[in-house]
Amino acid sequence: MTTLHIINAAPTQTTQLSSCLRVLSAGDGIVFCGEAVQALRAGSLAAQQLQGIDHSCKVYALEEDVLARAIDAEALPVTLLDYPAFVALCVAYSRVSSWT
C-alpha cells in the first residue's frame, strides 16, 4: 500500500517537499518534475535532506526537466523518467499524492 508523491515546485519556493518528507512512508516513491528538480542539485539543502530518507523509498525525476536545468543527476540515487515511464509508475503504486 505504497504512495507515489509528485512534487512540482522548487523546495526554496514552497513547503511541498518538506511536508512530503515528513509524512513519507517506507516503500513510497517521489517524482520530481518542473521546478521541483532543483531539489536534486548536489550540495543543496534539499538534496541533503533527500539523502536522509528511508532506503526503501525511491526517488525519480523527469529527465527533460533535469537536463534543461543543468542538474548533475549522478550525485544522487535518482531514476530519470520519460513520460511513458512516469505514467507506468503512477499505475504501479497504490495511490498518487500530487503535492500541488
Binding site: 500500500m1 504512495t3 515528513r22 509524512v23 495511490r95 498518487v96 499524492s97 500530487s98 500541488t100
Partner: peptide, 18 residues
C-alpha cells in the same frame, strides 16, 4: 502527528491535495 498522517495516507484509496 506525522506518524498518524502517514497512516491516514495509507488508509485512503485516493489522496487529493489543494
Amino acid at each position: 502527528d506525522d506518524q498518524r498522517i502517514q497512516q491516514l495516507i495509507r488508509q485512503h484509496d485516493y489522496v487529493m491535495t489543494l
